[in-house]
Amino acid sequence: MNRAVALRIAACGLMGLGAALLIAALLLSTYTEGKIAKIPLNVDATLVSEGTGTAFDPDSLNRDRFVVDRDVPLALQEQMTVEAPSNADVVTLQVGSTLRRTDRQQDDGLLLALVDTVTVNRSTAEAVSSESNPGGAVQKPRAIEDDQPPTNIALPHEGLAYRFPFDTEKKSYSVFDPIAQKAFDANYDGEEDINGLTTYKFSQNVGYDADGKLVEPVKYASLFDDDADSQVTARASMWGVPGNPEEPITMTRYYAAQRSFWVDPVSGTVVKKDEHAYHYYAREPLEPEVTFVDYKVTFDEETVESQVASASDERDRVALWGRVLPITFTALGLVTLVGGALLGSFSLRAESALIDPGLDEADHGFFDTQGFQVPGAEAKTEKIPAPRPSDLPPDRPV
């Protein structure tokens, strides 16, 4: 194999590699990015919010009157894990939430507990349903001594759940509230910097208006068969209601809440959340009489740092496959294509020169020695004619 053929093969290889790199860049920026920008299947997060509020004293159930304490330290914990079914398109999130009085030990301070399960689209974070999966469920409460497996109650979800979509937009989203068992709008409320990360802030009102006034509280949906915690009948003296102290009074539990979400717009991760929730008993929805719990909590610093780090990791993953690699492959592909084209042109000239050396004159110069002439190698010789006899001197023999 001569040198010209080898150069031509190398040129074809370079151009093929360049074309492959450009195709790879196109696929990464379109198809592959859509496959990468999804909620991970290994979500395992503990979100802790802390604050204070007014809370019912469980010990007062055995007293003559219900007691409500003020300025109680409270902690809301959410444990988020992935369950089946989870695949390339959907992920099932199970979130166990507990609200505790931190001034009490263990279960003595437990005020609220809920295990919510929802299947969401991994790209849009929207709840999805099918014949075998209604889109969500909540776990039926169990007694502490109950050793039977938990029982789920089907609860179809709608809207977003626990995440926002990738490429979150500056608009309103419908976000599901598992306590109210329905979705409410979360409205865009501006940009804010959270630990160096630019986030979108969204505000949601459940039963409140934009000014924080109670306007349409939600009747609490009990998970007990007998609605034990949604309607309570007790003596008037227990409720602290004026009148006959022995008169049985039935009150209904209502719920309202306000939330603010700070969301990473690239990954849809909620990096910070403030929550104000109000559970109370009343005979009329808009006339609270006995507070069960009224609290305001926000993500603690450790949770915010963890969520910001998680969002940054997802940002980097999406950027790598959706921007960095496509740009790199495009640049390398163009350089390789140009290099292959130049090498191909060079090989054609070399092959032409080998076939017809006369083509390699001043206009080509492929075999030129860069201005240095080799003595005798390419020097043109001149023939000297032999003298004729008539030209010889008379005294010189032929």
Rank of each mutant, 00 (worst) to 15 (best):
V68Y: 05
A113M: 08
R388K: 14
S352C: 02
A221S: 09
V263T: 07
E145A: 13
E158Y: 00
D294Q: 08
Y173D: 01
K383S: 14
P178S: 07
E246F: 12
P150G: 13
L160Q: 01
I144H: 09
S86H: 09
D116R: 04
F366V: 15
I194H: 04
N152K: 09
S203N: 06
Q373W: 10
V138H: 00
M251L: 15
D211L: 07
K273T: 04
Q139W: 01
G240H: 11
E246M: 11
Q373R: 14
A161V: 08
K35V: 05
A125P: 05
F261Y: 15
N121W: 01
E33W: 10
S310L: 15
V338E: 10
T250I: 11
T252D: 10
S129N: 05
E275Q: 11
F56A: 05
V304L: 12
L334A: 15
D108E: 12
E289K: 10
W239R: 05
H279D: 02
D226P: 07
L114M: 10
L21I: 10
T46G: 03
V232D: 01
T92A: 03
V118T: 13
D193F: 02
A37G: 00
L27Q: 07
L332N: 08
D360S: 06
D368R: 09
F372G: 03
K35P: 00
S267F: 02
S237R: 10
Q181L: 07
A20Q: 08
R259A: 12
D59P: 01
M1T: 11
P85E: 07
D193G: 07
W321M: 12
E131A: 14
N42R: 14
E301Y: 06
L286D: 09
D69P: 00
P385V: 03
G53Q: 04
I384Y: 13
I327R: 11
H279C: 00
N121V: 03
A228P: 02
D316R: 14
G34E: 09
F292Y: 14
A236P: 11
I194W: 04
K171Y: 04
D64M: 12
V270S: 03
G196T: 14
N244I: 01
G340V: 05
S129W: 00
P149K: 06
D64E: 15
A25S: 15
N87A: 11
D316N: 14
Q79F: 03
I355L: 12
A186T: 05
V271K: 01
K201C: 04
N2M: 08
V324R: 11
T98R: 11
P394F: 05
D185V: 06
G53A: 09
L214M: 13
V263Q: 04
A11Q: 08
A127K: 00
T124G: 02
R235H: 09
L342T: 09
T252H: 10
I39S: 05
S352D: 13
F56N: 06
A210R: 08
T298W: 01
L337T: 06
L197M: 14
A10E: 07
H364P: 00
R101D: 11
A210D: 10
R235S: 15
E284I: 04
V308G: 02
L342M: 15
V374C: 02
E305G: 10
V290S: 06
R396V: 12
A377P: 00
G207K: 02
S172N: 12
V91N: 03
L27P: 03
W321K: 01
